[in-house]
Write a protein that binds this DNA or RNA. Structure first.
Lengths: 218, 218, 218, 218
DNA sequence: AATGAATGAGCCTTCATTCAT
DNA sequence: GATGAATGAAGGCTCATTCAT
């Protein structure tokens, strides 16, 4: 394995290096301009690569998107929560905060999560893959978490809507960012602000879920 | 004179007919493909008009978008609520339901609201106009409504976040429609489903707001 | 005749008025932008007329150009000179001055002469007409005038070249106007400057012609 | 290495071949139709290249024009004259002849000089560049040459007009070519004719300049 | 007679992709 | 294997012209 690693690192370094730079540039541009708005030329320019490099390495713009997506961070978030020993409400709070950091933190500007968020409304060739590999598990994870809090008396459909309510609140800040910037030009998504937003969403959602739980017992 | 009016009402439409068809087609295509994804050619094809018709009637693609937007329905919604004698929670419920009907009802497939929702995340030349003429008033309206429920003790920033939570939940169903269709292929946005969703969002939000109100009194 | 004039002035005033305004606007735009650069829309805009008015009144853009041209002023110049009792050199001086006034004076900004000058190098459908009705007579007139000064000993070809030399000097100031403006930004074609230029061209040309006359006698 | 050079000289042309063909075609079309009248499609058709080739190689129509212009031949003309040991009148004769050969000789049909001549009257994006890099030096060169003949007593403004007179005579044959063809259908610009024209212009101008010099001494 | 509406050809440019080394 | 060059489809837009009143 070490040998293989060395081999890979030594034999195709130039080629792999270009691949990586292309993927980085692609994530950057896709998350900023969207899949449709992004151009192969701009991506190659930022990666300092030839215009033909994308098609050479990834076959097409679609192929580049597919490889640029990386569901690991999102999955890790869920894994961390599942393995945690905290109580469900705390785990929800932690999840929301980490999710918002992925969506809003400037350091994650080219996060696959951001790309996914951008493409939600605009079916790209990769959406099927995104849904089955990232979004469906996410909904399931959140469903389980909410179920732990809300109890068994609430119907599945209502539970799903709770998940939608949580995700909707989170995604709003990403989708409506251009709007919010115009409404509140002074607004900046620093860590303090992201924490405040996350706290609000968690508090808001937990209060609502607990209310629904109470109602369901009657 | 009445005759003249009738004549006008009959003749003008003939000359204005193309304009109207173009606007309808534009709303349809814009709300489906987004501003960037929409092509003048496709719009003209659906309107059964010449490619040059858009530039003749509206000057440019931008001009067409500006005229295709119509903030009246959204404003009417708010007016109706403001003038209502119902208590604030009921007014919130009614607003959410009507807003969701605009966003999801198949009969409103080319609603300006849908176009606006699509463009939120992707600044178009019209976004400034959309924000100042439609979205800012909407946020203000919801802010006032929530304020009536949540009381004076809650800070302005937190109030704003409540508005965002409500809007985020509503817009989620529009933005994530392609995703939800894949997750739940059987899902249809008929009136029954829209009502269920609206009820959930209102219930969820009211419970959370009342919880925040209670917290603020301590 | 008076009756006819009145009739014309009274019966089709509106229609004729539009025609005239179109012709004026056309001369203005043609002389500023050239035939190719001019657009029917701009002409109609300046004439405050419908876009279809040009085609209605003149059949086409070409037809408008043909009617916008008016060779009378140029012909009048020659007539005046021919009828004059002055000696040939003086008549040449006077002609050059009047010709330069037509080409350069701001008051003649839409002079047919200017339009013609613009189109010399760019064959338009009207060039044949311009040549046969205006330029050929002009060359002939100048040829006769120069012949009176240069005598019979000079060959026809050389005489023609003298005419070309005179016209070339005159037209230079019109053709190269954009260049001269850049070379000498302070330059203005006021009457004083036009007189100075005309004097120079006449002096320069007469000296040369007299020299050629002298040479021919040897 | 010599082999490599040869290889380069053989291979590079293959890749640069299209560029060259495009430039040649562009000079041809620009000098015939003017910048505005020329179309990228026609240029590419003559160069047997794709419509997108121009934008690939030169960025835009403007960029193509900028590269199609080449002021070297005109500058070389002036250099040759400056370095010559001939007397000023002879140098003027030689310059006029070479200048006319550039303007009229069929072998120079796509000479940058011709393009420049076409654009004089119709400001293109490149006119500023043309003026500062080619025309201003040309005027200065001719000014110096005429000054040597005309002496110091003649005012600068009058000197400039002499330069204009010379250039005007030369350019006339280019600008008015379509007209002259119609007036004298048999006329051909073969070397004999160009020599005759050049001799006339030089003779005509020298006589006039010497006359002005004599006048200035009085 | 006269005009607002509509047309289709054509413009320059941009794009993802493919070709030929 | 990797790249500069080339491609053709399509984009928004402008134009002179024609249509239908």
């Amino acid at each position: 394995m070490a040998a293989a690693d060395i081999k890979e690192a030594e034999i195709k370094p130039a080629s792999e290096h270009t691949r990586m730079r292309l993927l980085d540039a692609a994530r950057e541009v896709f998350s900023q301009q969207g899949f449709q708005g992004a151009t192969i030329r701009e991506i190659c320019r930022r990666a300092d690569a030839n215009v033909a490099a994308v098609n050479y390495h990834f076959g097409s713009k679609d192929g580049l998107l597919a490889e640029a997506l990386n569901f690991a961070p999102l999955a890790a978030l869920q894994q961390a929560s599942v393995k945690s020993t905290e109580c469900p409400p705390i785990r929800l709070r932690l999840f929301v905060r980490d999710f918002m950091l992925m969506l809003l933190d400037e350091k994650n500007a080219s996060s696959p999560c951001r790309i996914m968020a951008r493409e939600l409304a605009d079916p790209t060739p990769a959406l099927d893959q995104i849904v089955s590999e990232a979004i469906a598990p996410l909904h399931e994870f959140l469903g389980n978490l909410v179920r732990e809090i809300i109890g068994k008396n609430v119907a599945e459909a209502e539970l799903r809507r709770c998940v939608h309510s949580i995700l909707g609140q989170c995604l709003f800040y990403r989708h409506s960012h251009p709007v919010l910037q115009r409404l509140h030009p002074k607004l900046r998504y620093d860590h303090k602000e992201i924490n405040a937003i996350s706290d609000h969403i968690a508090e808001f959602s937990l209060a609502a879920i607990k209310h629904l739980e109470k109602s369901s017992r009657r």
